[in-house]
């Protein structure tokens, strides 16, 4: 289904009242994977709000992404336990290896990089989640290996 059709379908299930705004944005992100410029514009139109306000909300929350996620979306946990055990260093290592910043997607569309909060497995912190797999006790040194393995898997 086209992105615009998906969004239209979501609009049909909501009233254009302000209290529904975040729910609707979350729903679009879940169905489409991200919030494109066009999606934000149509949301603004639907709620009769200025587009700048939608942009303000979307950029305020870490949860929303404005670029399509990669085939292997990398989620680095920056929850309290992971943060204390160097989650930021893991994020930096992925950023270096993939040549993208947090919130971006690689040019080939294979990887995207995001920071998220707790996955609920703080005992093996710091953790990274890629697709549905958890990578426990990560170190910056393991990052390259993880990426190479995923690249090989994608080739086959």
């Amino acid at each position: 289904m086209e992105e615009s059709e998906q969004i239209e379908e979501i609009f049909r299930r909501f009233h254009p009242e302000r209290e529904n705004l975040l729910l609707l944005l979350q729903e679009i992100q879940e169905k489409v994977g991200y919030l494109s410029r066009g999606a934000m514009e149509s949301v603004a139109h639907f709620f009769h709000l200025p587009p700048s306000e939608i942009f303000s909300i979307v950029t305020f929350y870490n949860q929303f992404r404005r670029k399509p996620p990669g085939r292997d979306p990398v989620h680095v946990c920056l929850g309290t336990a992971c943060y204390l055990l160097g989650g930021n260093l893991i994020l930096d290592a992925f950023s270096r290896e993939l040549h993208i910043e947090k919130g971006d997607t690689t040019e080939d569309g294979n990887f995207s990089l995001d920071a998220t909060a707790c996955f609920g497995c703080c005992n093996v912190a710091p953790v990274v989640k890629i697709n549905s797999q958890i990578y426990p006790k990560m170190t910056p040194g393991k990052v390259e290996e993880v990426i190479i393995n995923l690249r090989d898997k994608d080739k086959n």
Binding site: P50, S52, E53, F55, S56, T59, F60
Partner: peptide, 10 residues
């Protein structure tokens, strides 16, 4: 009534 400008990010 225009709202061309707004805050963004955090």
């Amino acid at each position: 009534g225009k709202s061309f400008l707004d805050f963004a990010y955090r």
